[in-house]
Design a protein around this nucleic acid. Sequence first.
DNA 1: CGGCATCCAAATAGATACTG
DNA 2: CAGTATCTATTTGGATGCCG
Lengths: 133, 133
Amino acid sequence: MAAKKLIPGAGKGFTEECTKVLLAVSDALYVIGGKWKLMIIIAMARGNSRFTELQRQVTGISARVLSSELKELEANGFIIKKVTAGYPVTIEYELLPYSQTLEELVEAMTRWGMQHREKIKNERLIGDSVVKP
Amino acid sequence: MAAKKLIPGAGKGFTEECTKVLLAVSDALYVIGGKWKLMIIIAMARGNSRFTELQRQVTGISARVLSSELKELEANGFIIKKVTAGYPVTIEYELLPYSQTLEELVEAMTRWGMQHREKIKNERLIGDSVVKP
DNA sequence: CGGCATCCAAATAGATACTG
DNA sequence: CAGTATCTATTTGGATGCCG
């Protein structure tokens, strides 16, 4: 009776494809979502390996949150915690190969973030718009 | 005195580049982060435009949260709310051109999410690992 | 240095009911 | 249908202090 959807490609199998994509994205967000995980991985890829280094580089993160994020990243196979014996033992976090699979994603997000910042700047942040606190 | 960092590319300008990337990623996460925003955009790109449609497609979202996310997406220039007069007025949400700039990012995330799901599956979810609740 | 434990404040989200 | 309002439950996070 009513007209079908006007969107090209709509019809059987349409919602299912959508559901599949949504599932994938939701999986990704579940593991690397949140404010910090990607940022920690990026900071580590740039050579930061010590807890305090990471806390300095990843602006705004607290020790407690960093600690818990590192644990999750380890549990998910992105990083490993290395403890080297010594007078004060040295603790370093290293990226595992699996974290490399995020490269494409990180690059895409970096590019998008940069262009978005440009866009906002050009719209002259009039105060009503989206500016971070 | 002490050895410099062993990471290739380390040195002057290293931390600054890192900071720049972190800033970009943090910008991106601020606008499109969270569990729902990307998923809503994906669902809309697949032809869902009505509130109830979206709520059905984006599994698990409540009316209240959907409502507030739609408002943020509109405020950030990704979508627009269209009200068509009629006996019951028709309300539809449409993607604006700016949402297209997310395509690359969404694709990267979709690919990553799919490969991650495969990886987890192949590791045979032994129960200790990362499985969504 | 690299955390963990505790307490407390704030942000988030679910359930439910109600409206135009 | 497309939400809003209210209340409450849960999560999250900052601050602080302590410990090896």
